[in-house]
C-alpha cells in the first residue's frame, strides 16, 4: 500500500475518533446548558432562552451561603497548596540532590490515594485526636493535601525548563535574592504558577469527597448539589453546573490569551 495513503488514513481515522470523543465529553455539558435555559429541562430541543432557573438559583439562600463557603475554601486551598507546591518544586529541583526522585515520589503520592480515603482518614484522625467534627480549616488542609500533588507536578513541569542560573544572572547584576525572584523568576514562570492556582482552586471548588467528611453541616456547592440530587435533578442544578463550566472555561481562555499576548510581545 502507498505509505502516504496509509499515513493519511491513520491521520483521518484518528481525527474522526477525536471528534467522537470530544462529542462524548461535551454533549452532556452542552445538553445541560440548554436544559438550564429551557422551560422543558428534560428535552430542551429546540433550545430556548429562559433564565428562570438562574434567577431561582441566585435567590436561593442555601446556594448563596454554599457559594461563599466554597469560594473561601477554594481560595485558601489554592493559595496554600500552590505555596507548598512551589516550595516542594524548588526543593526537589534545586536542593534534593540525589534524593530528588524519592522526594518527588513522596510529593506525588497523594495523587495515588483516592480522595475519599483522604477525607475519611483525615476525619478519623481529627476525631481520634480531638473528638473534632471537622471545620473549615481541616477541610482546607485536607483539600490542600490532594491539590498539592497537582500543583507540584504542574509547577515542576514548568520549572524543569527554567534555568536557575537566571537568578544568579540577576544577582550578579546587583539584584537582591528577593528582587531577582520578583523581577526575573516570577515573570518567566508565572504560567505554571497561575496554572497551579487555577487547578487547585477548581479542584477544591468542585471536590465533594474531602469536604463531605470534614465540613460537617457547613454547606458547599458540591455538597448542596449532591444533597439536591437525592431528590431528583432540578433545573437549578443544571444552571449551577453550567455557570461553573462557563466560569472555568472563561478562566482557561483568559490564561491562554494572557500567555499569547505575552508571547506576542516577546
Amino acid at each position: 500500500m502507498n505509505p502516504n495513503f496509509t499515513d493519511s488514513l491513520i491521520k483521518w481515522t484518528l481525527a474522526v475518533f477525536l471528534v467522537v470523543v470530544f462529542a462524548f465529553l461535551y454533549m452532556p455539558i452542552v445538553h445541560i446548558l440548554f436544559a438550564s435555559l429551557s422551560t422543558r429541562p428534560n428535552f430542551p430541543y429546540p433550545p430556548e432562552f429562559n433564565v428562570a432557573s438562574y434567577i431561582r438559583l441566585s435567590t436561593n439562600t442555601v446556594y448563596q451561603s454554599a457559594f461563599l463557603n466554597s469560594l473561601l475554601l477554594a481560595s485558601c486551598t489554592a493559595v496554600l497548596s500552590t505555596v507548598l507546591g512551589f516550595l516542594a518544586t524548588v526543593g526537589v529541583l534545586r536542593f534534593a540532590g540525589k534524593r530528588a526522585l524519592i522526594y518527588a515520589i513522596f510529593f506525588a503520592a497523594p495523587l495515588f490515594v483516592a480522595e475519599i480515603l483522604l477525607g475519611i482518614s483525615s476525619m478519623a484522625l481529627y476525631y481520634m485526636l480531638f473528638e473534632l467534627q471537622g471545620n473549615m480549616l481541616t477541610a482546607i488542609i485536607a483539600n490542600a493535601v490532594h491539590c498539592f500533588s497537582f500543583c507540584f507536578l504542574i509547577m515542576a513541569a514548568m520549572l524543569y525548563k527554567y534555568d536557575w542560573r537566571m537568578n544568579e544572572a540577576a544577582i550578579v547584576c546587583g539584584a537582591s535574592p528577593l528582587r531577582s525572584f520578583f523581577e526575573v523568576m516570577l515573570p518567566i514562570t508565572w504560567p505554571g504558577i497561575m496554572g497551579s492556582l487555577i487547578t487547585a482552586f477548581v479542584l477544591s471548588l468542585n471536590g465533594l469527597d474531602v469536604s463531605f467528611y470534614l465540613l460537617g453541616a457547613t454547606p458547599t456547592m458540591p455538597s448542596v448539589a449532591w444533597g439536591a440530587l437525592r431528590y431528583g435533578v432540578k433545573p437549578e442544578l443544571y444552571a449551577l453546573s453550567s455557570l461553573i463550566n462557563i466560569v472555568v472555561f472563561a478562566m482557561i481562555i483568559a490564561l491562554l490569551v494572557a500567555i499569547r499576548l505575552k508571547r506576542k510581545a516577546a
Binding site: I29, L205, N206, P222, S241, V248, F249
Partner: peptide
C-alpha cells in the same frame, strides 16, 4: 476543561 468542573456536576450532566 470538562475535568475541571468536578465530579458531582459532571455526573449531573
Amino acid at each position: 476543561i470538562p475535568f475541571l468542573s468536578g465530579e458531582v456536576l459532571r455526573l449531573i450532566a
